[in-house]
């Protein structure tokens, strides 16, 4: 039976008791996964193959004790299935389906994050300890990819601001650089030099400390699925999606502007700022409009908003800057 990719507003999802006929996409999805898994297991059993469940199995771990926030409650949330099967995570392959198919091999525990550079003292912390340091909250953010599509994602995480404070950067720190895991045994995409591994990204200190900037550890009420950047990733809703670096293992405070993997790949196409900007096209395609994922075959494109609709909150960070030059 074909599944309609439905999505509902989170408000609705939270407050209205759910009748069996009104399953959320999440539940429909899990149910189908179970059916598929059972079918798969049956088939594999019949063929005498060995059975292993990968990535999606871990995705069922619920996150509890997070508070909700008003962010994005006027938006229609993208379905869980679309958020977790249409991904750019080149460490697992360059097709959109590759991460959800291949990220099962990622080991997210134990996981330590190293802090270094312009800070009082370098240190390391396990991701579980990190989770206990700061209260978690849910924030529904728009996510605009540089490829001119967008989603609405119910992230769970904490403001990066808090982590920066905790790390105690010195006055020399002007930028924060983030570095992803690059392990060829767990990440098949690393074996090909599509990008300069490990993936890295950077923010100016004021961007990192902006209250909208989030460290996400979950989505849709559960721990982050591998393909979405488990166990911890960056979310900067007014920038193109690739700035939201995934599976972070190192955070470094620097004086000089970090050169990101995408800048190294093509400096004329990907700048340090990469703020969503409908009036500055990607050199090869237009950024004026975008397609919202889940809209189906016959929904029109929508206009892309400056700073992805977060201009009121963040435009002042760039006042006086020529955004055509600092793209």
């Amino acid at each position: 039976m074909p599944l309609k990719q439905r999505s509902q507003s989170m408000t609705q999802r939270k407050s209205i008791p759910i009748s069996p006929s009104e399953l959320t996409p999440r539940e429909v999805y899990l149910e189908r996964r179970t059916i598929l898994a059972q079918m798969g297991l049956g088939l594999m059993g019949a063929l005498g193959g060995s059975v292993s469940l990968s990535a999606p199995a871990q995705a069922e771990q619920k996150l509890t004790g997070y508070r909700t926030t008003p962010f994005g409650h006027d938006e229609k949330v993208t379905s869980y299935e679309n958020i977790t099967t249409y991904n750019n995570f080149y460490e697992f392959g360059t097709d959109k389906e590759d991460p959800s198919n291949n990220a099962g091999t990622l080991r997210t525990r134990p996981w330590t994050i190293t802090f270094e550079g312009a800070i009082k003292r370098p240190r390391q912390i396990g991701v579980d300890d990190l989770l206990h340091l700061f209260p978690l909250e849910e924030r529904i953010y728009r996510m605009r990819c540089v490829e001119a599509w967008s989603m609405v994602i119910p992230w769970i995480g904490f403001p990066l601001q808090k982590l920066v404070q905790w790390a105690e950067p010195t006055a020399r720190a002007k930028y924060v650089e983030f570095i992803s895991l690059a392990d060829p045994t767990e990440m098949p995409g690393i074996r090909r030099a599509v990008l300069d591994w490990p993936y890295n990204e950077g923010l100016r200190m004021d961007e990192a400390q902006h209250p909208l900037t989030l460290m996400a550890v979950g989505l849709y009420g559960e721990i982050l699925p591998h393909q979405n950047g488990a166990p911890i990733r960056l979310v900067v809703p007014w920038k193109y999606g690739f700035k939201g670096i995934k599976s972070i293992v190192k955070i470094r405070f620097t004086e000089a502007m970090p050169i990101s993997s995408w800048m190294k790949a093509n400096a004329s196409e990907y700048g340090f700022y990469s703020n969503v900007n409908p009036s500055v096209d990607h050199p090869r395609w237009s950024q004026a409009t975008e397609r919202r994922i889940g809209g189906g075959l016959f929904e029109a494109r929508r206009k892309t908003l400056p700073f992805n609709g977060y201009a009121e909150e963040v435009a002042h960070l760039y006042s006086g800057m020529d955004l055509k030059k600092y793209f």
Partner: peptide
């Protein structure tokens, strides 16, 4: 695929 609504997350791109 279109008839079965099975064109994936981004049907327009798929087509």
């Amino acid at each position: 695929l279109a008839f079965r609504d099975a064109l994936g997350a981004h049907p327009v791109e798929r087509v």
